[in-house]
Design a protein around this nucleic acid. Sequence first.
DNA 1: TTCGATGGCAC
RNA 2: GUUGUGCCAUCGAA
Length: 322
Amino acid sequence: MSLPTLMSKVQTLQTSLQAKAKAEPAFRFYSLWDKVYRTGVLRVAYRGCRANRGAPGYDSISFKQIEDQGWDEWLERLQQELRVGGYQPQPLLRVWIPKAQGGQRPLGIPTIRDRVVQMAVLLVLGPVFEVDLLPRQYGFRPGSDAKMAIRAIHFGITQRGKREVVDGDLSDYFNTIPHGELMRCVSRRVSDGTGLPVIRKWLKVAVIERDERGERRTTETKDKQRGTPQGGIISPLLSNLYFRRFLLAWQKFGFGQRLRAEVVNYADDLVILCPNGCGEKAMAAMRHLMSRLGLIVNEKKTRLVKLPDEHLDFLGYTLGQF
DNA sequence: TTCGATGGCAC
RNA sequence: GUUGUGCCAUCGAA
């Protein structure tokens, strides 16, 4: 079948899954795995991974090697494994990259094989969870970008008169997300007996670090029962899914109404727009809820900004001096 | 409008 | 030695 046809078939699948999720907010999808290993989904997933032109993982197998050997046969073998349930994720390759503000960030690079499977799962699960994510979550989402988040903040400041802004930052967010709680977020929509264990394995796979002396194997996420790999294809979605819990708690405990405080979220960054006199309370409430969620508020980077005297730096923009 | 390449930005 | 999601821009092919 031609590539455009496969693409449209995948899109049709995605829109129907999303429509189902939208129509039934409490529906749990019980047969998602059989969609993950559909030929169309796997081919689109492979192509999507290749478009990134990313480096190989632990097994050192590159896109070129896969294609020299025959990529459709490679995909068929993978499909067979996924179908009979023999699929096991390979370890992640640890690479340290320098951060912009200094320090180093640990990447966990999956093998291309695991990246393709994760992409296939994202193609299927993404449209489902997209329905559940909240409007003020702007990071990592189709059709949304940093500029929209900035516009929302700007609107809150100028049109709604919010003059106290909590600039919140979480320390090492991806690596601190608790597995149990996260899997509960996934299980709210997914009851698939094959898919859920695979996602859990992705969270818990070993990490291989290479240096001059050789290889070192660690099982940090399995031991701490926390963290989603920085480099995993579904990690951004999972991070949004877990941050949603904070926003739901914010709603549930009535901080939005009581303090008239609106939260805007982009990945691990958040801003709380508050009227005069509410900023300190909102910041304290945020700290409390975050610790309840097992997350670490970065005290050095979290602060209360009082406009218009002070300004706010967020997502590469500076707000407050108009 | 939809795919391929290149570059940039946010996290 | 550099993963990932999303967005934007340019070029190319239909």
